[in-house]
């Protein structure tokens, strides 16, 4: 088997998704035997040595410099995989796309004129072709492992594209919407976490982003009618880590 050359990149993000790779404590040294970890700034002082077979990209694009860099990374990578909500959907920082950048700068910095960023936080796919997207805030490290080894063996990854709701059913957790009238985004949220929140008696808060073809308007209507959830609460529930993802952005509009 030919070892694949792997690079890990970071844009605007919390480091959590690339940390998932280091959190694979039982598998890490084995991964190091099957992949040449060519560039991984969080873990290694090696300088980049292009081209790369696989680039894992964390974070959203928020500066001019990042726009240039992601194109360069794309040009040097056979396969580009985005990891996590920031790279795949703009992340929590995309909340600022809905408001004035100047106001945001003034609220945080005593000298706002020194801060130089783009007016939006956007996912990688807005700038370059992405070969595979791994959703989640943070991603599931076992899914990351599965994706890496799929590409190592030349298969297309095959991950559950259903909803958190289905994972919850498979797990046998009682439905929190039925049993405790708690708002849960599980029916419209992408599977992958393993339905953790409902197992703690908490409603899913959508950190894995929209599933394929989510029916968010229907869930919103249901939540308003049956759970008496107010519109502002619903809006905030959808407007978090995947706030600009299609399917969450227009959560209360009828198609």
């Amino acid at each position: 088997m030919v070892m694949k050359k792997l690079a890990v990149w970071k844009f605007t993000s919390c480091d959590g998704c690339q940390l998932s790779l280091l959190d694979l404590e039982d598998e890490l040294l084995e991964i190091d035997k099957n992949f040449v970890i060519s560039y991984f700034l969080e873990a290694s002082s090696r300088s980049p040595d292009p081209p790369f077979d696989i680039s894992l990209v964390e974070g959203s694009i928020t500066t001019e410099e990042a726009k240039r860099k992601i194109i360069e990374i794309r040009n040097h990578s056979s396969i580009l995989i985005t990891i996590g909500a920031c790279a795949t959907a703009g992340g929590i920082q995309a909340l600022r796309n809905f408001a004035s950048l100047q106001t945001a700068k003034e609220r945080v910095y005593p000298q706002p004129e020194l801060i130089n960023v783009l007016p939006t936080s956007l996912p990688i796919s807005q700038y370059v072709q992405v070969d595979y997207e791994l959703q989640g805030c943070p991603i599931n490290k076992q899914q990351l492992l599965s994706v890496l080894y799929s590409f190592l063996f030349g298969f297309r990854p095959s991950l559950n594209s259903g909803s958190v709701c289905m994972e919850c059913k498979m797990r046998g957790t009682p439905c929190v919407m039925v049993s405790s009238k708690t708002l849960c985004l599980g029916p419209v949220t992408h599977a992958g976490c393993g339905a953790i929140c409902p197992s703690f008696g908490r409603g899913c808060y959508g950190c894995y982003g929209p599933k394929e073809t989510p029916n968010s308007p229907s869930l919103s209507r249901w939540a308003k009618e049956k759970l008496s959830i107010e519109s502002t609460v619903l809006k905030q529930a959808f407007h978090t880590f995947n706030c600009i993802a299609d399917g969450f952005k227009r959560f209360d509009e009828e198609d």
Partner: peptide, 27 residues
């Protein structure tokens, strides 16, 4: 690059800062 968390939090419900601000650092 800054993410403006202190600005994003304005107007959010008082239950939300834990989940939102935990995203400042994955470590």
């Amino acid at each position: 690059a800054p993410r403006f968390f202190e600005s994003l939090l304005i107007g959010r419900n008082f239950h939300e800062p834990p989940d939102i601000t935990s995203r400042i650092c994955g470590i």
